[in-house]
């Protein structure tokens, strides 16, 4: 069965490109240009995944509103926020509202397809009540399921965003120092500010330390990058 993907984006050209690329990949795509249109449609049938821009026409935070609405209706619905607003605050706010991932524009269409695929997959697994099958890679106490993007530290699950998961996977899979450039490409985004990676690392550390205060496996290699060292 074809999955339905809703795209809410006020820029017609971009919307068309996303839609074309996703339709090409075999998804059913619904296009909406503003909040009202999208909400009207969602009142009837919810999509399997939603791609939201934050600024919609005159509504500066229209995307956030839709995200909140969707999460209230269906908490397990994967939401991908795709925006040109790359501020840390916006990012945190989006995640708090329940967005599954937050990607800043410009985004590569190929990357978008891969990311949507994994989000849908995670969604499926979650709705199957976590029957986790797939490839699990373990690095000491750390186990990563690359299919479901699940992360376990000392057998406790840690909820990471897909981007954070990609960074962690890149770090854990390498014995050596992973340079910032390598980490940037691991997030499959074109141009990323160096500090974005640092911020992601910060968040990953924070999440690990929440369950293991002594966690210190991600070492900073000043001037080079980061290293998983446990």
């Amino acid at each position: 069965m074809n999955k339905t993907i809703a795209i809410v984006e006020d820029d017609a050209d971009q919307r068309r490109y996303y839609a074309a690329a996703l339709r090409e990949a075999g998804y059913t795509v619904e296009e909406y240009e503003d909040r009202q249109q999208a909400l009207n449609a969602f009142d009837g049938q919810l999509p399997d995944l939603a791609i939201l821009d934050i600024a919609l026409k005159s509504e500066v935070g229209g995307g956030f509103e839709i995200c909140r609405y969707l999460q209230q209706r269906e908490p397990k619905l994967p939401v991908l926020i795709l925006t040109s607003r790359g501020d840390e605050l916006d990012r945190i706010y989006g995640m708090q509202l329940g967005a599954w991932d937050y990607q800043t524009k410009p985004v590569s269409l190929d990357f978008l397809k891969v990311r949507i695929e994994s989000l849908l997959r995670i969604g499926e697994i979650n709705s199957d009540n976590g029957s986790s099958t797939g490839q699990v890679q373990c690095f000491g106490d750390l186990c990563l399921n690359t299919r479901t993007m699940q992360c376990f530290w000392q057998e406790t699950e840690i909820n990471l965003t897909p981007t954070e998961f990609s960074i962690l996977l890149a770090l854990a899979a390498s014995d050596e120092v992973v340079t910032l450039d390598a980490l940037i490409s691991a997030t499959r985004q074109g141009v990323v500010e160096e500090n974005t990676i640092s911020t992601h690392i910060l968040h990953i550390r924070k999440k690990f330390r929440a369950i293991d205060a002594g966690f210190n496996c991600i070492k900073t290699r000043y001037g080079l990058g980061y290293q998983w060292c446990c």
Binding site: A21, T104, P106, V107, D110
Partner: peptide, 13 residues
């Protein structure tokens, strides 16, 4: 970034 995104995607297409 919005037009850049558009250009980028048209190039990719």
């Amino acid at each position: 970034l919005n037009p850049v995104n558009t250009i980028s995607m048209s190039l990719q297409s």
